[in-house]
Design a protein around this nucleic acid. Structure first.
Lengths: 330, 330
DNA sequence: GCATCCCCTGCAAGAGCTTACATAGGCGTC
DNA sequence: GACGCCTATGTAAGCTCTTGCAGGGGATGC
C-alpha cells in the first residue's frame, strides 16, 4: 500500500532513523489505515529477541513485591518490553522450573529476588546467555549482578535501635532461611551485632516460621514460652511482625514497653499499625533492577552492584522496656 | 538423532497419542540427550497459538487480586499456558492500551476484572476474535461471559447485617464508581436496599474515594462532619475500611457501638483487625475464570455466567449502635 | 564533468516449528 | 488371495518478520 518492500516497513517501524522522512510518513499512514500490527511471534523468531523480561518473585501477596513489580513493569514498558511474572512460593525447585520455562519462552532478561538459587538455575542461565540481576541483595564482591541492600547491615540497624532503647533480652522470629539468603542475612546480622554489642550473657533465641500472620503468632508464642522471654522481638518481615503484634495484643501485652516488636520491609499498613520496621525502597529497587537489565540489553556494561538506601522507621511498637522505663522515672 | 522427521518429533511432543509408543520413547530419549527445547516463537508463528493468556487487573497491591492471580496462574500452568499480568491502575484508557498490546502479542485469551470496559476495548476484542471472561461480576443476562457474584446483592447482605444490628443512620465510603461497575453495583445495592428496608427519613450519604488507606480516612472524615453523622459506615472495599477504622481509632471512636465499619472483600488482615466484611472467594473466582477460558480454548462452550458463593463475615467492627445498646440494657 | 562515497531501499535467505496432504505398510474381509 | 481402508510417518509448504548484501541514485570534491 505504501509502495515499498516489507524490509523497508520493518526498518521504518523499528529503526525510524534509517528511513527517509517522506517514506516514513507514507508507511505510518498505511499502518494506521490498515490497522497493521506486527506479529510478535514472527518478530521474535526472526530477530531472536522477544522484547520480554521476566521477574521471578516468591509471592505477589505483599506490597513490597507488588511495588517492586509495578516499578519494574513501568520502567520496562517505557522501553518497549513486556514483563512476565513468575511466582515461586519460596520453593527453589519451582524457581528453577519457572526459569527453564521463561528461558524456553525466549525472555531477554530475568530479575530474581535474592541471590541464592539452585545450581541448576544458575546452570540454565549459563546455557542461555541471558542477562539477569538479583534484586533485594547487595553483594559487591559476589559473582552476580545485584541491586539492593545488605541484609546483615539492615539487621544491625534494627538491633541497634533496640539496644539504644535499652533492650537486652532480644529474640527473633525469622522467616525460613533455608534457600533464602535474605532471611539468612538478617539472622546473621542480628546474631553478629548482638554478639558484638549486646549483653554477653544473653543468647538470642531465634525461631523460624513461614511468612504468614499465623507464623508470626506462633513464633511469638514460642519466644514468650521461654523461661526468660525477650522484651523485644525482631521479625524477619512485616507480615511476621503483624502476626507477633496481633498475638501480643490477644495475650494482653498492649504496650511496647511490655513487648517491643519490630519488622522488616515497611508494608503499606505498617505505619497505620504503628509498627517500627526497617524501611526498604521497594519501588526504587525494582526500577533500578529494570534499569540494569535495560542497560545490558542495550549492550552496555552497567554497575555490577547497586546499593539502595534503607532507613529505620521507629514507630509506636518499640519503646524502652518497662523495667528501664520505671528506673528512668524521676 | 532419533532417525525420524521433524514432523514426527513435533507430533510426539504435542500429540503423544498420534505416535507409536516405540518411536515416542526414542524421541523422548533424544530430547533428553540433546536438552532440546522447542522454540516457542517458532511454535507460535506456525501454530497461530501462543499458549499465553493474559489477566488484566486494576492492581496487584491487595491480596484479593493476588489470590485471584495466583489461582489463575496455577490453573493455567497445569494446562500448559503461561499467564501474562497487566495492571491498569483503575484507568480504562490504560486497560485499552494493555489489551491492544496483549492482543498484538497473540494471547489466546483474556481475563478482565469487572465488565465495564471502554468501547475501544470491546472493539479490539471483536477484531481479534479471542475468548475472554469478566471476573468479579455476575450478569447472567449480559452479553459477555463472566464469573463472579452480583455486587448489588452483596451490598444488600451488608446493609441487612447493619439493619439487623439496629443501625438506621448508615453512610458509605465508596470507591470511585466511574468506569468501575463493581463499585457502582455496590453503591446501587446499598441505595436500593436502604430505600426498600431502611428508615424512610434517612438519605444515605455517600462519598467516593480512591481505594487507599488515606481515601478511607478522608471518606470517614467527611461522613463524620455531617450534621447527622452515620452510626455505621459501609466501605466499598477492605482497604477503604482499614482507613476508616484507623481514622475512627485516631478520633477516639474505639468501640463498634460508637461507629460500626464494614468492608468488602475480606483481605488477609481483615480477620485480625476484627473487620466485618463481605467475604469474596477470590481464588475460586480466579480458578473458575481460568477454567472457563481453558474450556473455550479447548473448543467447548462452557456456561456463560458462573456465580460464586459470597458470605458475610460478621466480626468485631460491627455492633448494635450505642443508643440501642443502652436501650436494650436491663 | 567524472569518480567516489554514502545513504536509502530492495532482494532474498532464513529463523524453527506446524500441519495438510501424500504415501507406505498392515490388517480385515469377501 | 486380492482389494480396500486405516494408521503411522514423511514431505514440503507455509507462518511473518528481520537483516546481510547489493545496487541505484544523488551529493561532493577535484
Amino acid at each position: 500500500m505504501a509502495g515499498v518492500s516489507t524490509a523497508t516497513v520493518s526498518r521504518a517501524l523499528s529503526l525510524p532513523g534509517k528511513v527517509s522522512a517522506g517514506l516514513r510518513a507514507r508507511i505510518q499512514a498505511a499502518v494506521a489505515a490498515l490497522q497493521y500490527q506486527p506479529n510478535i511471534a514472527a518478530r521474535m523468531l526472526a530477530a531472536r529477541r522477544s522484547w520480554t523480561v521476566a521477574a521471578i518473585v516468591p509471592t505477589i501477596r505483599n506490597n513490597v513485591s507488588a511495588s517492586c513489580l509495578e516499578a519494574i513493569q513501568a520502567r520496562l514498558e517505557a522501553a518497549g518490553y513486556t514483563l512476565l511474572i513468575g511466582m515461586t512460593g519460596y520453593e527453589p525447585e519451582r524457581e528453577y522450573q519457572i526459569t527453564e520455562a521463561f528461558l524456553a519462552r525466549g525472555v531477554d532478561g530475568l530479575i530474581y529476588t535474592g541471590a541464592s538459587h539452585l545450581p541448576a538455575t544458575y546452570a540454565a542461565l549459563e546455557r542461555h546467555p541471558v542477562p539477569f540481576v538479583n534484586q533485594g541483595v547487595f553483594e559487591p564482591d559476589g559473582p552476580y549482578p545485584c541491586v539492593g541492600f545488605d541484609n546483615r547491615e539492615a539487621a544491625r540497624l534494627v538491633v541497634q535501635h533496640l539496644l539504644e532503647l535499652g533492650h537486652r533480652r532480644i529474640g527473633m522470629v525469622a522467616s525460613i532461611q533455608l534457600a533464602n539468603d535474605r532471611a539468612a542475612g538478617r539472622i546473621a546480622g542480628v546474631v553478629e551485632t548482638l554478639a558484638a554489642c549486646g549483653d554477653p550473657g544473653w543468647r538470642v533465641p531465634i525461631v523460624e516460621q513461614c511468612s504468614t500472620i499465623d507464623g508470626g503468632r506462633a513464633g511469638l508464642g514460642l519466644l514468650l514460652a521461654l523461661p526468660t522471654p525477650p522484651s523485644a522481638v525482631i521479625c524477619g518481615n512485616d507480615i511476621l511482625a503483624y502476626g507477633a503484634l496481633f498475638e501480643a495484643r490477644d495475650r494482653g501485652l498492649r504496650a511496647a514497653s511490655e513487648l517491643s516488636v519490630i519488622g522488616f520491609g515497611d508494608l503499606d499498613l505498617s505505619e497505620q499499625l504503628g509498627l517500627s520496621t526497617l524501611h526498604v525502597p521497594a519501588a526504587e529497587m525494582g526500577r533500578l533492577a529494570a534499569e540494569y537489565l535495560l542497560a545490558r540489553l542495550a549492550g552496555g556494561a552497567p554497575q555490577h552492584a547497586t546499593r539502595v538506601e534503607i532507613r529505620l522507621a521507629a514507630r509506636a511498637s518499640t519503646a524502652p522496656p518497662r523495667a528501664l522505663a520505671v528506673d528512668s522515672a524521676p
